[in-house]
């Protein structure tokens, strides 16, 4: 039995490796206003793997603490909620965008025109560190 299991494991392991999520990040950016005001971070995540990836958190030395948030409007009330995890489907994308999902950078220490590294933590994939371009009040120019 043990030998059968070992053989099975040999068969399954390469398959499991290719089925793992393979997440890349595109177009990361912050809207930075003032040091005392949280900055919103946005990025597009693409998963080229055969398995859904589950994002569970973000951190950045430029943020103090960082959180996954979503802006919601319910019955005319604007609010933000904490998001525990975000699923990036297999062969799919997930977009953080103004007015919607954002990375909440609580105590921003950054400079417009530079980049700030953000590390994204996944439940089932290695950490991913992504440079976010820092923009000011105008946000990212449209068309990018």
């Amino acid at each position: 039995m043990r030998r059968v299991l070992a053989a099975l494991a040999c068969l399954l392991l390469p398959a499991a490796a290719s089925a793992a999520p393979a997440v890349t990040a595109q177009g990361g950016w912050f809207r930075y206003l003032l040091p005392q005001i949280p900055a919103g971070g946005f990025v597009t995540l693409t998963n080229a793997g055969d398995t859904a990836a589950v994002l569970t958190g973000a951190s950045s030395p430029a943020c103090g603490s960082a959180m996954l948030h979503r802006s919601l409007n319910r019955s005319g009330m604007d609010m933000m909620i904490d998001v525990n995890s975000i699923t990036i489907p297999a062969h799919g994308t997930f977009r953080f965008a103004p007015g919607d999902y954002h990375i909440m950078c609580m105590k921003p220490r950054m400079t417009v025109g530079t980049t700030a590294d953000v590390t994204l933590r996944f439940r089932n994939a290695p950490d991913l560190t992504v440079p976010f371009t820092v923009y000011g009040a105008d946000g990212r120019p449209t068309g990018q």
Partner: peptide, 16 residues
Amino acid sequence: FTRCPDTCPLTMQNAA
């Protein structure tokens, strides 16, 4: 409010 990092600056940016 200023600590609103997403929809408030979005609205103000739209105004600009």
